[in-house]
Amino acid sequence: MKDALDQLIEGSLPYILVGRNYFPDKAILFPGSFNPLHKGHQGLLLAAERVSDREGLLELSVTNVDKPPLGIVEVECRLLQLKGMYLAVLTCAPTFAEKAELFPGVWFAMGFDTAVRLLDPKYHDDVSAMLARFQTLETRFVVAGRLHAGKFQGLESINIPSGFEKLFIPIPESLFREDVSSTELRGEIGS
């Protein structure tokens, strides 16, 4: 794994597929840090597969917009918890724009909070141009509601720029709701 990870980081490999030797034709990626993997991740991926009729994979980016790069030991630990349960893909694509360019036609699963960040100008110079590029790449976002600021909020609570609403597909609360977060779980483990 170390040699492949080194090649990924230096740019000579576009991605590393874990658990299979070919990428599905109709895939939905669920990006995350999976630190730790929990029932919320599992349920969201399953619901996204049902809503999209696509095969789900977990995507772990070695580089991240808001966090330091992952080392080989950390990558291996996170992959170990997925072994035998999920297909995964490793990338060095920290943003959804970079992920979409790497995997044209792929859809993405995400929670409400991630969808809010996706549309936040803090992360993108021109949100409308980015969304137009997603349209060209046939990218879609399957979004699950989430407990946010003490209230369950879904796609209907997000202000999507006009003309780009069809890029976003809701996961009904009746199909998936799991009020758990990795941050909370890490806090419980640390206490």
Score class of each variant (00 low, 15 high):
K2I: 14
D3C: 06
D3I: 09
L5G: 09
Q7Y: 12
Q7R: 15
Q7C: 13
E10H: 11
S12R: 15
Y15W: 12
Y15C: 09
R20L: 05
P24A: 02
D25N: 13
D25H: 12
K26I: 03
A27D: 05
A27P: 09
L29C: 09
P31N: 03
P31D: 03
G32W: 04
G32L: 04
F34M: 09
F34V: 08
L37I: 14
K39P: 00
K39M: 09
Q42V: 15
L44F: 05
A47R: 00
A48P: 06
E49D: 07
V51G: 05
D53E: 14
E55L: 12
G56C: 08
E59L: 10
L60K: 11
T63F: 12
N64V: 01
V65T: 13
D66K: 08
G71V: 11
I72Q: 11
E74R: 09
L79G: 12
L79W: 11
L79S: 12
L82D: 11
L82G: 10
M85V: 09
Y86T: 12
L87M: 13
A88Q: 04
A88C: 13
V89K: 00
C92Q: 13
C92A: 15
A93V: 08
P94K: 13
P94T: 11
A97E: 14
E98M: 13
K99N: 07
K99I: 08
K99Y: 06
A100G: 10
E101R: 15
L102C: 12
L102A: 10
G105V: 14
V106F: 03
M110E: 05
D113P: 10
R117C: 07
R117K: 14
L119P: 01
D120G: 06
P121S: 02
P121G: 01
K122I: 10
H124L: 07
D125R: 10
D125T: 11
D126M: 04
V127D: 00
S128Y: 01
A129H: 08
M130Y: 00
L131P: 03
A132E: 04
A132K: 03
R133L: 15
R133M: 15
R133V: 08
Q135I: 03
T136S: 05
L137V: 02
E138N: 14
E138L: 06
T139M: 02
T139Q: 03
R140Y: 02
F141D: 00
V143C: 03
V143F: 00
H148L: 05
H148P: 03
H148S: 15
G150T: 06
G150F: 08
G150N: 10
K151T: 15
G154D: 07
G154N: 05
L155K: 04
E156Q: 10
E156F: 00
E156A: 12
I158A: 04
N159Q: 09
I160T: 01
P161V: 00
P161L: 02
F164I: 01
F164N: 00
F164V: 02
E165F: 03
K166T: 05
K166Q: 10
L167K: 04
F168W: 07
E173S: 10
E173M: 10
L175I: 07
V180M: 15
R186A: 09
E188I: 13
E188Q: 15
S191T: 14
S191M: 12
